[in-house]
Each structure stands twice: as structure tokens, then as C-alpha cells.
Amino acid sequence: MTVPSPEAKAAGLCRDLHEQLPEKVEGLERTDPGPESELTAGWGDPAIILRCGVPRPPEMIDPDYAAKNGVKVNGVAWLLQKNDDGSYTFTTGARLAYVEVRLPEERTGDGLGPLTDFAGPIKKTIPQGIA
């Protein structure tokens, strides 16, 4: 997995988030992927993967795309992208660091459930704003 390389401010926010992430997501145990980093985390196998400090997706600046593919879960706005392999990528919007969550195809049957486990830690550690 590719570890993001954000600017210092976003990296600090991501380290704060890392400390607040849950040990379980949707009942899946935390199994962080390699290489070890405070910018990445994972749960289960196949894993739900979280990466913090990713670049802003280009689709996010297209208001029509964002309006059609945006979801809000427990106060956190996400941009939804379906990938060719059947997985989904969700990226936070309107936060000072971008957080990406990738749900493998095998985990997409739970809908947005996994995102509820991330809402509290994200709201607590990544302030609203534009990165």
C-alpha cells in the first residue's frame, strides 16, 4: 500500500487521528497494513483501508460530480467513488486533511456502515476547512 506524504500540518492532524481510530470497525479487528505508518490503518481481511493525508481527488472540484456522489455520515461529508474492481473509495471533504477509506468489494454489502465508526474520530481530530 502507498503511504501518503502530506504537508506537515496535515501529517500532524493525521497522527492525531491515528491515535483515535477504533480497534474494531463493523466488528472487524484492526490489522494495519505494511509498511507501518501513522498515516494508514486497516481492519479485517480483505481489509477496509484508511489513509490520511491523501491528495484531494480531482472529482471533488467538479460541483456536479460532488453533488451527485457526495454522502454525509454522522456529520462527516464524503465523496464516493466506485472503482473498476468493485470496491468503493470514500474521501472526506471540507476538512483540513483528506481522509480516504477504501472498502473492498467483499465489504460493500454493509453500505455506509463502516463510515459511522470513523465519524467521531475524524470530527475530533481533523477540523473543518479546506485543505
Rank of each mutant, 00 (worst) to 15 (best):
G42Y: 04
L112I: 11
C14P: 08
P35L: 05
Q81C: 01
L39V: 03
V25W: 01
T125C: 05
V101H: 02
A97L: 06
I61E: 12
A131I: 05
L96K: 15
Y65F: 15
D117S: 15
T40W: 00
K9I: 10
Q128L: 05
P4D: 12
P114H: 09
D16C: 00
E38Y: 06
P33A: 04
M60Y: 09
V101N: 07
L39M: 03
E100R: 15
L79D: 12
A67D: 14
V54C: 05
P35N: 05
G113C: 04
A119E: 10
M1G: 15
F90S: 06
P127D: 07
L115R: 04
R56N: 08
G93C: 01
N69P: 07
T116G: 15
V101L: 15
S37G: 06
A41S: 11
A67P: 01
A47K: 07
L112Y: 13
A10G: 06
T40F: 00
T89G: 10
T125L: 03
G129A: 05
E29W: 02
A97H: 12
F90G: 10
T2A: 14
E100D: 12
D84G: 00
P22R: 06
I48G: 00
I49F: 00
P46E: 04
G129E: 08
S37M: 04
E59M: 08
L17T: 06
T91K: 06
P114A: 05
T125F: 03
E26H: 04
I48S: 01
D85A: 07
A67S: 15
V101D: 01
K124R: 12
K9Q: 15
I48A: 01
I122F: 10
K123H: 05
T2G: 10
R30H: 05
L21V: 05
T89E: 15
E38D: 12
P33T: 01
